[in-house]
Amino acid sequence: MNRNFKNLVIFLGPLVVFVSLFALIPVIGTFWISLFRDVSFLPEKKFVGISQYVKLFRDGQTLRSIWFTFIFALTSVFLEMLLGVMAALVINENFRGRNVLRGMILIPWAIPSVVGARIWQLIFRYDYGAANYVLRGVFGIHINWTATPLGALCVLVVADAWRTTSFVAIIILAGLQTVPEELYEQGRIDGADLFKRFFHITLPAIKPVVIVALLFRTIDALRVFDILYIITNGGPSGATTSLSLYSYQYFLMGDFGYGSAVSVILFLMAFLCSLFYLKAGRFREAVS
């Protein structure tokens, strides 16, 4: 054994062992389980090949879950990017209390997602929620938010945006701080107004950062679970059951085979996004 190899084992061994045991092998294991009929109360595991995947695409709820997961990720990430860029522009300005505002932005992101979900669940309650209280006072209406698929989607998107916009804002802020002041100076001399300066100078300059934040958020939004579990529990009648939640429901019933097959579909969707992310983030260059 040469010394170099010994050093590699000391420094990188623990990482490889941990990640293999508790992340890599479980992912492969999940795929393996999905090829079996593996129900905890049936005595025998039976190899069924890809037949659970065939069943998956004939299962109306799976297709609905794929659709919902996709729509949720699209709308929530869009809203988060919009608000995130806005918030980043604001905290990039110089004004009194800027640090206070920055700390404030971090709060929704810092607290547990479960707590955020509980807060929004209460706010959007039909009978004594604050949202309906305001609506009743201003417009004289009240809405049973979580009773319709669209209303439930709105509540979930708002709850998700509340928690994760902060993350987007912080990442974009880092991008904004690298834009040289001279560029704006030049723009002003050329007579570009506020909007022109934003669309022609700021936006192109922060585009790489925006793309990284966008992909990162998309990957995270695809695996949404916590807020659904609390606020809608997948309802009304399965309309907001994401792939994560659907898979979890099968695990809960003890059907690990089919639950794993559902989670493999989600895994493939997320994996595709992370390939783009790894490329856009230029991580390869950062390593070498």
Partner: peptide, 17 residues
């Protein structure tokens, strides 16, 4: 890159196993 990709795996595709 493997470690980075792993951290982006959905928790649900690990937790069953």
């Amino acid at each position: 890159l493997g470690a980075l990709a792993l951290s982006m795996f959905p928790q649900i595709s690990i937790v069953g196993y």
